[in-house]
Design a protein around this nucleic acid. Structure first.
Lengths: 201, 201, 201, 201
DNA sequence: AATGAATGAGCCTTCATTCAT
DNA sequence: GATGAATGAAGGCTCATTCAT
């Protein structure tokens, strides 16, 4: 009765949806959300404009889907890193993971830097983004808490800011940014950290 | 039939131009460049839409002017800070200056975060932005070079990223961000820095 | 390999076609022709969008079919009412029939009010609608002609307009419109009509 | 200081706004609200699409303006007709006024027939339309009330329906509809009305 | 210098219709 | 007969920019 099997349909849908997401991410990341038109996305994906709306309710919805997917991926990565080793080791792993994630999701990262600066766009994404950020902040801060540092949240903030700033530099010019070396330097700095004598806020 | 002296004319021009820049900055920073219309800027500045084009060739040109003005201001601030005291003292002064500048130019800072992430927009600003960034990076790195640290450029990069990341956090929620305390913590951290044993990249 | 008999096929066709017409009428009448999408019709009918085009050449064609069906029904109703009794009795029967038809075909009636006002749409229906209206007008006027009233066509026009206007009021708010009483009042008015002394145009 | 006088601006605005309203009315009335595009209106008015939005917030707003203007005009006409003469005379005047108004505002009348049938469009007009209709109904019913007829509201309804139905016939084919004669016939019918023996609902 | 009416390209979105299966 | 993914032409609307005055 179904002239195309459900599987075929599923595959076609999957294919189109992916093409849209990939194209949208590339364009959003390169031109910014606002300067990317739906026409461009469709054209880049090799589909018609109209088809995009079979899969996403709006341009905004595409952005949302992109964020959801990437945020989920990142959280999974961090979850997988948790372990029962020493806090210092965990911290090092987290730091390296941040840089690795930035490297692998370069386009999304770039996009998110652009979006973060626009409260209006952010609001359209739902409340999830800040939740996500908090989760990462908590994860990053956990070793500090476990170590018993006096101001773990501030420590986490500083570390997060450092990684964030470096990732942005990387994102803006990946070719010339020595990501690995910088990562090593950061890890080393926190590694050599004398236990609780850190100057704290 | 010459209703104004040349001086009055000049003053009026200055006045209008300034109003435009102030309004544009406020709006760009709050809504983002793309979501701010020329109509809004003119209305906020209390002038007609058409007049804006007497002073600026385009909306893009307003952005450019804003960047030029702010970048110039920041560079001046840093120039004024140079002195013949110890590198460590200079470093501290620079760090504090960065935070102070972020605090005083909050709106511009916010705007620049949004714009920086968009290569396409950045390109439209002329090559000046990266020059400006390099200059700051150099200034920030000078104490490290003077101190003879093994990798002064990497050190500068890390410090810059740290300050940048923290400034962004501040920019996104100035009310709840303890800017002064964080500044103190950063300065302290670099102050207590044992001379050349820093783990380097 | 012929999974269905020709009869079953035929039945399935009838079934689908009817479902489409029923759904389309309901939606057209509630939302108007233009605000009803083919997708809605198909969804309401429980079929796929594509299938609709197996039965109807276009959305417009659905409207046409609806009109044809309903106009035919109404004409049949009126034909069945003709008889050899007195003109006055026939007139009463016709009047009541008009209201009854409006009541039974409420949805179609509503739709037709919307369409009638749009010459462009009317034209697309073929020339049938005005023919149909003329036929009804003739039927309604026949008792006046038989009675020998001086201006039977004008009389018919007036009666038709009256019924039409009342039907519209009814169609717009069926719950609060006392259709039966109004019908009685109209019939009574024409019943008590002294034979040929009517003030005529 | 104002390079064009306020008067000149006012005149230009007036001119453009009027052109838009005139064109919109003509098109809405001929093609229906939905089938008329903003592009068409602008083109017919000899202006650009964008300009329309300097004067009206939306296509819907144009419709609203059209309705407000016409409804106001009609109410004024009726107000001007009130007088202290006999109820029968007033009734005659009202009836004639209805037809005259329909004749003069033919396009608006056609439009309103189309719109009335679409609750969705009607709703967008605000609650004013039904108020307006009620007002007319009341005005039309007043002579019946003054005369002491048993069911003045039903009488008004019937009269209103009659006029409405006739006006629609006229609106659909003004060339071939003998408006004056029909008006005479209707007035005559109500004139010869024996005081309170009317069959009432 | 200053105004604001006017333009027109482009934006996001909808939808009737087609077509491979 | 039946499906639903895919198309592309509009649709309403916004906005940077121009221009007569």
């Amino acid at each position: 009765m179904t002239p195309r099997t459900e599987q075929q349909h599923q595959a076609a849908r999957e294919e189109s949806q992916q093409r849209i997401l990939v194209s949208a991410l590339a364009l959003f990341s390169r031109l910014g959300y606002e300067r990317t038109s739906v026409r461009m996305i469709a054209s880049e994906a090799g589909i018609s404009q109209g088809l995009l709306y079979n899969y996403f309710a709006s341009k905004d919805d595409v952005l949302k889907a992109l964020f959801e997917r990437s945020m989920r991926d990142v959280l999974r990565t961090f979850e997988a890193l948790q372990g029962s080793d020493s806090p210092a080791e965990r911290l090092g792993r987290y730091i390296r993971a941040c840089f690795a994630v930035a490297e692998e999701n370069l386009e999304f990262w770039r996009l998110s830097y652009g979006v973060r600066a626009q409260p209006a766009v952010l609001a359209g994404l739902g409340a999830d983004f800040s939740t996500w950020e908090s989760t990462i902040l908590d994860t990053l801060g956990e070793p500090f808490r476990t170590l018993g540092l006096p101001h773990p949240r501030t420590e986490a903030r500083i570390l997060f800011a450092l990684i964030d700033g470096l990732s942005q530099q990387y994102a803006r010019d990946p070719e010339h940014f020595p990501l690995r070396e910088i990562a090593d330097a950061v890890v080393a700095r926190y590694d050599s950290m004398p236990e609780p004598e850190l100057p704290a806020s």
